[in-house]
Design a protein around this nucleic acid. Structure first.
Lengths: 318, 318
DNA sequence: TTAGATGGTGAAACGCGTTTCAGAGCAAGA
DNA sequence: TCTTGCTCTGAAACGCGTTTCACCATCTAA
């Protein structure tokens, strides 16, 4: 396989000139340019991107850390990331962590080892303080509120406020025993949501209803099963993911629970399934978030931290 | 940032010895090994993976081509791929194509340019013959029947046979007007399914019912809407994706169509949602397929082409 | 006429880890 | 005693594209 020096020799020019032709630099005469191009075509020359990466000190690769790919939330986020990657002639290495620390550490090490130029962390269990230390090796962006942090960027929505808004909305509609369903208990986003819920309970005392480890459609059944065991049942649920909300709605129908009369449901994200099943939801611009995350990691953002707006879409489950 | 030569100088050894220490090669005396390790620790030495890649001529990166990430089928496939990647100390670059040729070409070029060591193509529109030509640059594996092909590997299920089985099963159960729902019309897997359907219609003549462009839960409603416009309606549907089947089932319930009496539904994949909604389905070992695809791309498979078994799971929608 | 662009070109250094190969020291087998 | 055969070590070449810098021609503005 021919390299740039072979081409130079064959075309009767220097390697510098070949490099200039490859990279469309000016200052190459038309005849030499043509000679080089002819030779490259003849021997089907291909740049070795590893050599380019070594030479330039960057790989044109971004690391993307997600706990799991098959969840629609992360699916959409990746969709946005992929879109911006294409537009910026970048590619990305997907690191699925399953919330294992080793996997996250692997991603941080890839940054340290220059295998990737930057890192987008969509969700994590390693503490932010530890992650922060790696910013010296490349740009790091997280999708949670990291305002005030000087070394890493963030793109996020205000989960505290939107949870508060959702709770107020349900209260206003007359619901008295409001609970919520969430994925994992830990993590920044969950923390803010919990904070909002606690504050709401302080203002309007009621029994606490929290259902955790709900990620997929099929988990909706689990929630309804758990509720059926309770003597005092919630009459409204905030569900942090539309697909889970859809699962809950389906389980309610099967159990002949009237939605929204006996049970109100508010989803989050505004996934297509929410529209199809007429679920009231708080729209989170997930794909946009993915796009913004990518722009941040490329250093194309003006502010280090960026908040995206959330808005309520009223449909039939409240 | 220190490089291997700095370390060598500081530890008073040659670069070769440092390299040997890094890679756990034998033939390094204990004292030199210790000296090197001490220096590496002191200056926080990090290998530059770009240099390793250039030197070794491989990147330890595999390209994974999917049309979209957010579909549960590809989500699960990636899950399996990710699992094997971890086990083999590899990472992968995810290339979402949206079935655009340029994106697929990009992936092939990455292989040519040594940015990736191999390529897993989960679905594609560029003809296989074109793809084949790139096998000289690295291993290529596709997840469709490519038996007989000498230059690329494949891992697949027999879609012709399982469609035949599904049709025979519905026939046996007494259904008379059987149709099917599929994603895109083109592509190898769709081709075999269509072939089976045509053959079935030849054996048991009936009106043809084919619904295309169905990928997600919400597309189920679309199918039922289309059917409601028909004067002669199908009484059974083969649905090539469980999530679409779930959407159809939900739409049926909303439209008070009795499943399975007035409409039988058979899904494919055996996704968790099928279990939760009690949908009869043909289980396809998607995650396993992802794992096998990865093993093939690393050259760890015995046979070039590998077929995985499919099996019927009888539940409540037939 | 002269100083200062602007166009065009190539030698050499650079980024950095791996691998080959030659050679030294030392012990076991012939 | 001599030959093998390890163990251990390092110089140098290798993989390959980019970038810096020096230099020569022209050409333009003063």
């Amino acid at each position: 396989m021919a390299n740039i020096r072979d081409i130079a020799k064959m075309a009767g020019v220097s390697v510098t000139t070949v490099s200039r032709v490859i990279n469309d630099h000016p200052y190459v005469s038309e005849e030499k340019r043509k000679a080089v191009i002819d030779v490259m075509r003849k021997v089907d020359y291909q740049v070795n991107r590893n050599a380019v990466s070594l030479s330039q000190g960057k790989s044109h690769l971004i690391g993307v850390v997600v706990p799991f790919v098959k969840h629609p939330y992360f699916g959409l986020l990746i969709e946005g990331i992929a879109k911006q990657a294409v537009e910026n002639h970048y590619h990305f290495v997907l690191i699925q962590t399953n919330y294992e620390k080793v996997r996250e550490q692997e991603a941080l090490d890839m940054l340290k080892h220059k295998q990737i130029d930057g890192l987008i962390i969509c969700s994590h269990i390693i503490e932010l303080a530890t992650i922060e230390a790696y910013h010296q090796y490349g740009k790091i962006v997280v999708s949670e509120n990291a305002e005030g942090n000087k070394s890493i960027d963030s793109v996020f929505v205000d989960h505290y406020q939107s949870f508060m808004d959702a709770l107020a909305y349900l209260k206003h509609k007359g619901y008295k025993r409001i609970g919520y369903c969430i994925g994992r208990e830990s993590g920044s986003n969950s923390y803010f949501r919990q904070l909002a819920y606690k504050e709401f309970l302080r203002q309007y005392p009621q029994k606490e209803f929290v259902f955790t480890e709900n990620y997929y459609f099929e988990d909706g059944q689990k929630v309804i099963d758990e509720i059926s065991e309770l003597t005092e049942k919630p009459d409204a649920l905030l569900v942090t993911s539309d697909v889970v909300a859809a699962g809950i709605l389906t389980a309610c129908k099967n159990a002949h629970i009237n939605v929204p009369k006996d049970m109100a449901i508010i989803g989050f994200d505004n996934q297509p399934i929410a529209k199809m099943m007429d679920i009231t939801t708080f729209e989170i611009p997930i794909a946009t978030m993915g796009e913004r995350l990518f722009q941040h990691v490329l250093g194309k953002a003006i502010n280090r931290h960026e908040e995206l707006a959330v808005n309520l879409i009223e449909r039939g489950t409240v």
